[in-house]
């Protein structure tokens, strides 16, 4: 196999991993702070993609349309998340774990049908902006410019998340709330709003992932199914609630799939799942230390 094809395949795999990372980081953050595996996360990602489609189509003539969509779509999803958290989820934190999981599943069901009502069942697609169309060459290797953009954006998001969690006050409070929520409450901090903030940030990341994937795939109902299972697995192998773990998990997922495409195209999608099983067999609690 010629090395140029192999390395471009790997780079494309890495760039897809960046989207998986962004979505999984949101899931992982919510899981770490609220201890709720948010099954509706996939639906929020789908809303992000559809919202990006609507904004980008409305601003078709505007050269900055795509970039505006990239900002607006996650904000829309974050707003949806805020409503869900304040109106419903906030009243359920004392409940049993399984109830919370089922609640997020129910929210996902409702959101999916709302997407069907608002956008219909048609397949949609948007083009990447002119700046990101075409290919970029790195020596012998050539990859689409959009994937190159993702390769740059992923690490930026990772570092931003790290700075947010470790350097800002609200990040520090959320980490503390993840470890001992009673104690944080005792210190006079309104834990309820910390949870709301964490949930909204998680939703924002889901929406960002959805907006970023929009130019790469056909936007349609049902795109929530695969992403939710993939991001769940990524979060599990990375260590529940660990942002860096989500990054490593996403890289494993993306790389095994793109290498699998070269080795055995029909079963390419099997490779990441097999990798997950192997990782969990060796390290049942994930690669990195989980937050809780």
């Amino acid at each position: 196999m010629d090395p140029a094809a192999l390395s471009s395949q790997i780079l494309i795999g890495l760039s897809r991993a960046m989207i998986l990372f962004i979505v999984s980081a949101g899931l992982s953050f919510v899981l770490g702070v609220l201890r709720v595996p948010n099954i509706a996360h996939g639906s929020l990602y789908m809303i992000g993609a559809f919202a990006a489609f609507t904004v980008a189509t409305l601003l078709q003539r505007n050269p900055a349309g795509f970039w505006i969509a990239l900002v607006v779509a996650p904000l829309v999803v974050a707003a949806v998340g805020l409503v869900i958290e304040r109106v419903l989820l906030a009243h359920l934190y004392q409940r049993e774990h399984l109830m919370l999981i089922l609640f997020t599943f129910a929210v996902g069901l409702v959101l999916n049908d709302l997407v069907k009502i608002v956008w219909g069942a048609d397949y949609r697609s948007i083009m990447p902006p002119p700046l990101l169309s075409g290919a970029v060459s790195l020596g012998d290797i050539s990859i689409p410019r959009y994937n190159f953009f993702l390769l740059i954006l992923g690490p930026i998001v990772a570092v931003a998340m790290w700075l947010f969690v470790n350097k800002t006050k609200i990040g520090k409070i959320s980490r503390a709330a993840a470890v001992d929520r009673e104690m944080v409450g005792v210190l006079g901090i309104n834990v309820s709003w910390v949870f709301a903030a964490a949930f909204v940030i998680g939703c924002f990341l889901a929406g960002l992932g959805g907006a970023l994937v929009a130019p790469m795939t056909s936007i349609s109902l049902g795109m929530d199914h695969t992403i939710i299972i993939e991001s769940f697995l990524i979060v599990t192998i990375g260590g529940l609630g660990n942002i860096w773990g989500a990054l490593i998990g996403a890289l494993i997922f993306g790389l095994t799939q793109s290498v699998g495409l070269l080795v055995l195209p029909q079963f390419a999608v099997v490779f990441p799942y097999a990798a997950v099983v192997i990782v969990l067999w060796l390290r049942p609690r994930g690669l990195l230390r989980s937050v809780w």
Partner: peptide
């Protein structure tokens, strides 16, 4: 494993079977 870790590992093993059947 117990609790959530148990559930997650079961999801991943189950998904492996599903994806093989699917493909």
């Amino acid at each position: 494993l117990t609790k959530l870790y148990f559930g997650m590992l079961q999801i991943s093993l189950g998904s492996l079977i599903w994806i093989i059947v699917y493909r």
